[in-house]
């Protein structure tokens, strides 16, 4: 049961990471807006998407609190610094979302747009840093493994954001070669760091993370590279976003499983788990309600990606 709960919570954080990278892409689109993107599309980007992103985060935290309540004290002390920074970022992001909504036609290099991009990068990176703390037992800046993990996360977030820009612009036939190159370059950098970089540092430190999930991770990234190559050959690079999305959502799940039998290394997962009294009821309830949420989410994605240009 702890493993099922772990996968569920990690999946929620994965969706959050994916959606916040998408927001970063929207922020980058606003900055580059004068060079191709029409204001109508930018206006449509400001939809209720903004609160859905946060809801996944709240849901992820709720899941963590509900299932792993025995490990809360230790976890909160371990990730206190980075998550406090994330909190500041979330509130600042909220202020900026409202500000940009008000000035939604102001595209290009404005202070508001630049700050929004910065905060949209800062918040998911803070959560990545918290994840690294759970995996390695140290803050990311304290170990080589931590640095490689952080660089991989940064490359992944940027690759996802830029590939979303590529996807959006290609739908309006406004895709530039420079953007194509950046998107492919970042994806290759992400895959390289995620496989070769991590394999090197993990092997040298005989880390507990080397196991079947790590092999799955390597295969996943190799498939991403293959997918990228096929898209390049067939001139369908705009679809790169879909491949990166799968990796982004899967990443926290794979690494949470790789961290087993620990939750906050070297603290044990089973010791942190404290939902024995109600876990079955919670999971059955989720199983019943999840299809409703999924249907809603699919309709939302469909409506969001097929918006009329000026509504």
């Amino acid at each position: 049961m702890p493993e099922i709960a772990l996968v569920l919570v990690a999946l929620l954080f994965g969706v959050y990471g994916w959606m916040s990278s998408l927001e970063l892409g929207i922020g980058l689109l606003r900055i580059t807006g004068r060079r191709g993107l029409d204001t109508g599309t930018n206006r449509n980007m400001f939809t209720p998407l903004w609160e859905i992103t946060n809801v996944f985060l709240v849901f992820g935290f709720t899941g963590f609190v509900v299932f792993f309540n025995n490990g809360l004290q230790a976890t909160s002390e371990a990730v206190f610094t980075v998550l406090t920074l994330a909190m500041v970022g979330i509130v600042a992001r909220g202020c900026l979302v409202l500000y940009l909504y008000y000035h939604r036609n102001q595209l290009g290099w404005t202070l508001g747009n630049a700050l929004f991009v910065l905060v949209s990068l800062l918040v998911p990176m803070c959560f990545a840093a918290a994840g690294i703390r759970l995996l390695t037992g140290a803050q990311f800046w304290q170990t080589n493994t931590g640095w490689v993990f952080a660089a991989t996360a940064l490359a992944g977030i940027l690759a996802l954001a830029v590939s979303f820009m590529q996807y959006s612009l290609s739908r309006q036939q406004k895709l530039s070669n420079r953007l194509r190159l950046t998107s492919t370059g970042l994806t290759v950098m992400f895959a390289g760091l995620g496989t070769l970089g991590l394999q090197t540092v993990l092997a040298n430190s005989t880390n507990h993370l080397m196991g079947a999930p790590f092999v799955a991770w390597t295969v996943l990234l190799d498939l991403l590279l293959l997918f990228t190559a096929v898209l390049l050959l067939t001139h369908k690079e705009q679809r790169l976003w879909w491949g990166l999305s799968v990796v982004a959502v899967a990443a926290p799940v794979v690494w949470a499983l790789a961290n087993r039998p620990y939750l906050l290394y070297p603290g044990l997962l089973d010791t942190a788990y404290g939902a024995q009294a109600y876990d079955k009821a919670a999971l059955i309830g989720l199983g019943v309600i999840f299809p409703v949420i999924l249907v809603g989410f699919i309709i939302f994605v469909k409506l969001f990606t097929t918006q009329p240009k000026s509504s």
Binding site: G274, A275, A277, L286, I293, L303, F304
Partner: peptide
């Protein structure tokens, strides 16, 4: 959380339903 963790889980789930369908509604 041991006695009422389920209430937290249900609150989060209903909040998620509200958010997703508010987006669809809008």
């Amino acid at each position: 959380n041991k006695p009422v963790g389920l209430a937290f889980a249900l609150e989060g789930t209903f909040f998620m339903i509200e958010a997703v369908f508010l987006s669809v509604y809008m």
